[in-house]
Design a protein around this nucleic acid. Structure first.
Lengths: 188, 188
DNA sequence: TTACGCATGTAAGAGGTTACATGATTTT
DNA sequence: AAAATCATGTAACCTCTTACATGCGTAA
């Protein structure tokens, strides 16, 4: 019960780029896939141990010689197959939960001022994210143009950008509408 | 640990519209807030019991006389205050997880055909949702124009519509780009 | 030498979904 | 009479986050 965790696939996919440590994977995921995927410590390390146990990944370098403890993992052939099988499979739509939108939905009890404040906060959050992902996009286009992954990363970054822009527009329009008290405009 | 559940607020907000049973709340939520909020049986009923225990809601009608068991709850004054306190509070950004986008991100290992299939499936899903929410929007504008909640519901429906439309455009553009093999267009 | 970042890992415990159980009522 | 839907509720059990513990290396 409680639908199957996808953490293993996030890990396998990351290791398919190049060998990494758990620490690397986590930071890298939060940095570049943050807008649609993330993992926490408590997920990563047990998952790595398990994936190693069932031979989907293996430790490449244990760096025992006086170096700091650092486990760098790499995909096995079996791991690649597992990754491929998952990649090909169609996905179910995931349920999402946005507390903010729930508040806006139940917003009848809020004053105009409070309601506007919610949307403005959201506007700033989205704007910040948008700028952040635009920077990553620029960076990829400039310094990783020929990386075989870049094309796919840009596609998903472009998706994030498109959607964030749309939400930004919505914030803008909604604020304008509320401020002008043209509440009826939605009903036309 | 494991961040605080928002189920109670989803329930309080629903009961603020009008008294409802647990069954009603669940169905109503999946129907109209499905694009940004949902609850499952296993959450609703225990939460209702608990909310009643701490006097945020109470049973309005137990309909004992030969009628089917059906508990209709209504907000108490205390419940209204709790709802207001939550509504006013700023929200944290929620982390979202999209398995599909993760696959597209790791898409290097997929054939063009497989990749396109993923996006096309998504396109259809989004299109269906878009049409569904457009129907609800029309319904509200026609038959519930003067309902005090309608204005707020239309705002969130409009948000869903805007974002879904953006994603649809992205699907379209991305498919076109891949099909034309103009992979370099992203790099310009 | 103090502090911060690197790096791994575990424990606790709430959150959430699915499946099952139960029984009434309405529809076919 | 059977099947579908209404309606509530519980149990199992996985998921996930937060917090804590630990220790090394490096920079101020």
């Amino acid at each position: 019960m409680a639908r199957e965790s996808k953490t293993k696939y996030a890990i396998l996919g990351a290791l398919n780029i190049h060998p990494m440590s758990g620490y690397d994977i986590k930071n890298w995921l939060t940095k570049v896939t943050g807008s649609f995927w993330s993992e926490s410590d408590g997920q990563i390390y047990p998952a790595l141990a398990n994936l190693q146990k069932i031979n989907l990944i293996r430790i490449e370098k244990n760096s025992s010689s006086s170096k700091r403890l650092r486990n760098v993992y790499r995909l096995t052939k079996k791991g690649e197959k597992e990754l491929d099988a998952w990649l090909e499979k169609p996905t179910q739509t995931t349920t999402i939960r946005s507390e903010l939108v729930l508040k806006l939905f139940y917003g009848k009890r809020l004053t105009n001022k409070q309601y506007i404040a919610h949307i403005k906060r959201r506007e700033l959050q989205v704007l910040a994210k948008l700028q952040y992902y635009q920077e990553i996009t620029e960076h990829l286009k400039k310094d990783h143009k020929n990386d075989p992954d870049t094309f796919y990363w840009l596609i998903t970054l472009n998706r994030t950008e498109t959607i964030h822009n749309a939400e930004l527009n919505w914030c803008h329009e909604t604020l304008k509408m509320i401020k002008n008290k043209k509440k009826l405009s939605l009903h036309l």
